[in-house]
């Protein structure tokens, strides 16, 4: 009786080991692709990198940040949609500066308040100066700026997205 018990015990070890090995193989063969499958959108490279025309430079007022909105169409998975951007164009003697309207703190939309001479953020009371510099509040850095160029009097900005 004890002998067959010993045989049984060793067989059990063998079967357990086989089952574990088979399980590990199946887990890896399906598990690793499954992780890639779930993380797939995060691993995708394609973003956008394009020069977007904002119109004639002369049409923007001088020394007052002027909002300008445009859209880019994008493909995300099966979904083809457009994404809106708002930028502020600031034109002065030094040239032209295009600021992002996204607060550098947590991405709320800032608005230009002429009476305060500042961009204010509705979320955590941040304030930015006309040049985008932080005047008040939690933002870690000034408003983002876009690379600009002027072709035939038309202002273009470079929109880059990872």
């Amino acid at each position: 009786m004890s002998e067959s018990d010993a045989v049984n015990a060793s067989r059990r070890k063998f079967v357990t080991a086989t089952a574990a090995a088979v399980g590990a193989v199946m887990g890896t063969v399906v598990g690793v692709p499954a992780l890639g499958y779930l993380a797939s959108p995060a691993l995708e490279a394609g973003g956008t990198d394009a020069w977007v025309p904002l119109g004639k430079l002369d049409s923007f007022p001088v020394a007052v940040p002027t909002p300008f909105s445009f859209t880019r169409s994008r493909v995300n998975g099966w979904d083809k949609s457009t994404r809106s951007y708002t930028v502020y164009v600031l034109r002065d003697e030094a040239g032209v500066k295009v600021l992002s309207s996204r607060c550098t703190h947590l991405s709320c939309q800032v608005t230009w308040q002429a009476d305060q001479n500042a961009f204010t953020c509705p979320c955590h009371d941040a304030k930015f100066g006309a040049q985008g510099e932080v005047l008040h509040g939690p933002p870690p850095k000034p408003l983002d700026t876009y690379e600009t160029k002027i072709e035939d009097g038309t202002l273009l900005i470079r929109v880059v997205e990872a």
């Binding site: 049984n8 067989r11 059990r12 079967v15 089952a19 088979v22 199946m26 063969v29």
Partner: peptide, 23 residues
């Protein structure tokens, strides 16, 4: 026979064979 280890051994092998077939 004992379900574990005798019978279950065959089950594991067949399942694995099906798995390979599926892949």
């Amino acid at each position: 026979e004992k379900f574990f280890p005798d019978t279950i051994y065959k089950d594991v092998l067949i399942s694995f064979a099906l798995f390979l077939l599926l892949i």
